[in-house]
Amino acid sequence: MATLTHATTDYSNTSTTNWLTNYKNYVDKAEFNRIGWAATAVALQGCILSPVLLLVMFNTGGGDWQFLLSMLCFLLVIVPILSALPVKFIFPAFATSLILHVLVILIDLL
């Protein structure tokens, strides 16, 4: 008895890629410079974001929850770096920390 086979055609268009594929490709290429990305994330977090948030918070009378959020965001960036996790974990952690810091600063200023 003969087997029936169906011809499978690939309908995916390789010329268009979505943002997730672009992100994965970028992270794979950035893995070679993981130490540089980690140092940049720590430097931006520790030398710019946290001090600016603390200065704005103390000048405008921010609450304790803002200080707690700042410290937790700092840990959110430090833990993947000290755990030697790949860059695909460092980027989202830093992006989350950056967004939360900017939101708290805007809350204090407005």
Rank of each mutant, 00 (worst) to 15 (best):
Q45G: 07
D28V: 03
G36M: 04
T17N: 12
A43E: 10
C47I: 05
K24S: 04
I35V: 06
S15H: 10
A30S: 12
G36H: 03
T17K: 15
T14S: 13
L20F: 09
W37S: 04
N25F: 06
N33S: 11
A39Q: 08
E31K: 04
Y26P: 01
E31I: 01
L49I: 00
K29Q: 10
T17F: 11
V27N: 06
N22L: 15
T21Y: 11
E31Q: 14
V42F: 04
S15Q: 12
N22P: 04
K29L: 08
L44E: 09
T40L: 12
I48L: 06
N25T: 13
F32P: 05
T14G: 13
F32E: 14
F32M: 08
W19F: 09
K24I: 05
G46S: 07
Y23L: 14
T14A: 15
N25Q: 13
A43T: 10
E31M: 04
T40P: 01
N33L: 11
Y23C: 05
Y26M: 11
G46D: 10
V27H: 03
V42Q: 08
A38C: 11
N13L: 14
D28M: 02
I35S: 08
I48A: 06
L44P: 02
G46E: 10
I48P: 00
Y26A: 14
C47A: 14
K24D: 05
C47D: 12
T40G: 08
L20A: 10
L44C: 07
C47R: 13
Q45L: 06
W19A: 08
G46R: 07
N13P: 02
W37V: 09
N25E: 13
F32C: 05
Y26K: 10
N22D: 15
A41L: 01
Q45H: 06
L49N: 01
Q45I: 02
I35R: 06
